[in-house]
């Protein structure tokens, strides 16, 4: 089965989905990411879907589930790079991806995580 590599950059995990994943591959990614968050102590997960041509209800649910799992594990998930046609289709399909933060691209996704870290540092002075 194809597996999606998980890269670590500082305390952020980055995943870029480059292949048309079978459903088992999607589920494997979910589990691999949960393991990787705990193992690395990452505070953020960025999932790049700029190469993904369709997001159906299965993949959409996986993205929402990954976001929930990482939140429970104290990491924030940001989905980046969604194609316009994919966004239009997702909304029409009836998936709003509630609870999943998105950013237009990887750079903006990283900036979002940094902003959050800065806000946290201000909110909890030592």
């Amino acid at each position: 089965m194809e597996r999606v590599p998980i890269l670590k950059l500082g305390d952020v995990l980055i995943v870029s989905i480059q292949i048309d994943l079978q459903d088992q591959g999607v589920l494997a990614l979910q589990e691999d990411l949960a393991d990787a968050v705990v193992e690395s102590g990452a505070r953020g997960v960025i999932i790049d879907i700029s190469a993904v041509e369709i997001v159906d209800s299965f993949i959409g649910r996986m993205l929402a589930t990954i976001a929930s799992i990482s939140r429970v594990l104290d990491a924030e998930t940001i989905v980046v790079g969604m194609r316009p046609a994919v966004a239009i289709t997702l909304v029409e399909l009836g998936l709003s991806l509630g609870g999943v933060r998105t950013a237009l691209n990887l750079e903006k996704g990283v900036a979002l995580l940094e902003d959050r870290d800065n806000a946290r540092a201000v909110a909890v002075p030592r």
Partner: peptide
């Protein structure tokens, strides 16, 4: 957009 819609429906 229509390609994406019909492929998603097919999936």
């Amino acid at each position: 957009v229509d390609q994406t819609k019909v492929v998603t429906a097919a999936s």
